[in-house]
Design a binder for these strands. Sequence first.
DNA 1: CTGTTAGCGCCTTCAC
DNA 2: GTGAAGGCGCTAACAG
Lengths: 335, 335
Amino acid sequence: MSDVARIAGVSVSTVSRALSGASGVSAATRAEIKRIAGELVYTISPDASRLATGQTRRVAVVVRDTETWFYYAILGAIEPVLRSAGYDVLFYRVSSEAERDAFFDELPARRNVDAVILVAVPLSNEQVERLGDMAVPIVIAGSWIDHYTSIHIDETRAARQAMNHLIQLGHRRIARIGITDPEGDPWQPDAGRDAGYRAALEASGIDFDPQLNVRMEFSLDGGARAMDQLLSLDEPPTAVFAFSDEVAIGAMRSLRRVGLHVPGDVSIVGVDDHPMAELSDLTTVRQPVREMGTHAARLVIDTLGGNTVEGNVELSTQLVVRGSTASPRGLQWRS
Amino acid sequence: MSDVARIAGVSVSTVSRALSGASGVSAATRAEIKRIAGELVYTISPDASRLATGQTRRVAVVVRDTETWFYYAILGAIEPVLRSAGYDVLFYRVSSEAERDAFFDELPARRNVDAVILVAVPLSNEQVERLGDMAVPIVIAGSWIDHYTSIHIDETRAARQAMNHLIQLGHRRIARIGITDPEGDPWQPDAGRDAGYRAALEASGIDFDPQLNVRMEFSLDGGARAMDQLLSLDEPPTAVFAFSDEVAIGAMRSLRRVGLHVPGDVSIVGVDDHPMAELSDLTTVRQPVREMGTHAARLVIDTLGGNTVEGNVELSTQLVVRGSTASPRGLQWRS
DNA sequence: CTGTTAGCGCCTTCAC
DNA sequence: GTGAAGGCGCTAACAG
């Protein structure tokens, strides 16, 4: 910077002001300084200005994994919003329990970012307590924690939308494929959908059968294995409510393998509205993932801008009926 | 840090040494200092130490998009390697031409990271020239640029593996679904596969038909639309070599929609070995994406560690035959 | 509008 | 093994 100042014949303060866009510099000087800086391919040292201002201009985005649609879709929505507001995105992935432990043990984000976005990361109670030690604003996307700003869907309602659709079609023996919670701590999205599943059954006077409520790893394979397990029951389900479209598609594969048809033999509903859902003709409960991401990013920006921010945003979901659901064999559609 | 020093009754230099793991501190003092730091939930200010050392301990990972398997899979592989080596991952997504222009115009990574990993980002010639201005080591993953360290597959060979499989099955009328290059500049992965496609045809004495060589947007939809286009030809292909599994799955959807069967009516081969490929029973050319990611990360770490590094790593691909390919109707398998 | 003067919080010689 | 002093490159008052 001193080079630029010398060549321009001004002080470094002026250069700093000119380049940072601060007011108090004549247009002419600013232009000249910018020209020279451009010629020298000079860029302000972010770290030095961070040290001086105390602002990192960085936001941490913490995701549970990268291979599940929900996470990469939301990451893709968050990044441009943050970037256009001048924030760098620091990317953290905490897939395993061990990685989460390490993350909360070392707090690599501490003093390293201005804010943190936690994207549906399953947290133990101790980890929730550690959140406070980060000493920066925290926004939760895709799940929620008391006393923290969050944006998410009504999981229970989403589950009911799916379930009511199946029940209305005449299904009585409806399974749910959920997600294993990593360490026994309840993970809200799954817990919420579980609650919705049970509530819908109860509202229709259908007995809850624990054998039909299975949990598996969050992946295509998990869905396939869960379906295998359900098919091995004495009385298999006629319909399945899957945690996500990926899980649902995995389940469909298992059905195809044993020669069962969707929806002829088994109906399936997912959640997400994954791009693949349309191609697989999968009925699903659409959740506004991109909107969740951009909104979360805006919440962060607003908070850092000194504005107060709504504490708990709930986005609505929508049933998308496609070809993977129908009335069970021998039953008529009872509209 | 001065707090810790005061409480511990030592100087800040000692605290710095103790916490940074530098030698020259007695084990006892170090332990005591660490204890106190832990108690105070004190963390070294990364920016201050960056300023002092001149190292950012950050690496930029630049991807073309987040919704394509190749990119998020490789990102998932890169992150843990970098993190365990003590580097933060700065995430940049440059989907559109405009974003790429902005990225190379502002060089947000300049002076902001110790190294850059470019993941198969399509670059214009001017942008390639700008790379030098970043003034940090650059590693290319999934494509290559002269004079830069890169890791990638032999795209031409991958295409030939797919094509030879189809040709051996007896197909003569084989289409290729490629990817549109954003600004007319050749994008190596597509160009390489195009070359392999043509070479394989020529080697078998099959005439190249430009109508069969289409390019579309890189997505499920792109694949579907490309297939629609191919089906509208007077003489549609009996086999398709798709740029990726996602493109291939999109194409399969189009076929299903018009009642055509895979592989009965049309055979399809993809590239990647996407998790969905197995579920879709899709024949594909597997590329080692995770390995590419971890290797790219290691190349960065080695380079920053002061080691010289191989300039151009080529990983091999492997044909995975599944159920989406068969001999064309009326022809026998000629093994 | 512009220059001067202090730090921001840490690391790094250099002495002791 | 430990402390003191200087500086990394920038920003933020405060003068002028």
